[in-house]
């Protein structure tokens, strides 16, 4: 039978992967072509998450605020006082916590995305990395409302305690997009690792609960980067979010620029997480439909 008019042939060849990775350029092109799927999936997942809640998206603001309050109480009870004036300690804690949770949500939601997307994976061929990517977008969308919360707490803190440090406008704030991009990429890269592990070992996400908790205590969120002495400073570099969270405190709280080693640390961790996560995930994603 002749092919109908307007039929545009698109030839695809499916062969065994000689190297463990599929051809990367077509993969990335396909990923880019279907990016709208990831953004819409993030939007709809966000919508579904708050659909049955009476307060709806108000939780996006309430959640981080209550979380900040809990940790503030914890650190002020455990270690009252400190070197920071006024409410500056709370400001450092809040913005560190919000940035940490942005990256952590990328990882925890992304880790579940493949096993939760079972039917979609069994039914359609598409770059599977779009699923954890969609979680990274959703995490970013949930991070955005925390910025006005931070600004509100900052201004209110200054009003209540005039000694609170409030940096005026500075061009150093232009580092903020860089910090967030590095945090997002690092989180996405780690999500690729844990999403793959979770396909093979279904208790990975249980373990992840403890990993992320320890990860936060080892990150400069509840403590200041400057409080580390001697060999302990290595904690800032072996932690994938160490440089990003040091940079967060420096720019958001102090309004200072970043030094070269912090910039390099942010870039290296983001690149390493993407390369390791990307290789681990993409080289195994054709296996997912069998394992799910």
């Amino acid at each position: 039978m002749p092919v109908n008019e307007g039929f545009v042939p698109k030839i695809q060849v499916f062969e065994p992967h000689r190297a463990s990775l599929p051809p990367l350029i077509p993969y990335i092109k396909e990923f880019w072509t279907r990016r709208a799927f990831a953004t819409e999936l993030a939007r709809f997942s966000d919508k579904a998450e708050y659909l049955d809640s009476r307060l709806g998206k108000v939780w996006l603001v309430l959640n981080p605020l209550l979380l900040g309050l809990v940790y503030y109480l914890v650190v002020t009870i455990i270690r009252p006082g400190g070197t920071l004036p006024g409410m500056t300690r709370l400001d450092h804690l809040l913005i560190g916590l919000f940035t940490f949770y942005f990256a952590q949500n990328c990882v925890t939601a992304g880790a579940l995305s493949i096993t939760a997307g079972g039917r979609l994976i069994l039914n359609q061929a598409f770059p599977r990395a779009l699923l954890p990517f969609s979680c990274a977008i959703q995490s970013f969308q949930q991070f955005i409302p925390t910025i006005p919360v931070y600004i509100f707490v900052l201004v209110a803190g200054k009003w209540a305690y005039p000694t609170t440090i409030v940096p005026g406008w500075t061009w150093h704030f232009l580092w903020i997009p860089f910090i967030l991009i590095c945090a997002g990429i690092t989180g996405f890269g780690l999500a690729l690792v844990f999403a793959t592990l979770n396909v093979y070992f279904r208790d990975t996400t249980k373990l992840l609960t403890y990993i992320t908790r320890i990860w936060m205590y080892l990150s400069p969120v509840l403590w200041l980067p400057s409080s580390l002495r001697g060999n302990m400073k290595i904690l800032l570099w072996v932690n994938p979010l160490g440089p990003v969270l040091s940079a967060t405190s420096r720019v958001w709280v102090s309004g200072e620029s970043l030094n070269k080693s912090t910039i390099l640390g942010c870039i290296l961790w983001a690149a390493a997480a993407m390369m390791i996560g990307g290789y681990f995930f993409i080289s195994r994603e054709r296996d997912f439909a069998i394992r799910i």
């Binding site: 499916f14 997942s45 069998i290």
Partner: peptide, 28 residues
């Protein structure tokens, strides 16, 4: 459909594919 990879041999597909290989696919 390109969901699983061949172990040997190959599959050549000429055209856009739509699939219904599991009911309720992708539905939240």
């Amino acid at each position: 459909a390109g969901i699983l990879s061949p172990t040997e041999g190959r599959v050549i597909v000429n055209g856009k594919i739509s699939t219904l290989l599991a009911l309720g696919v992708g539905f939240n």
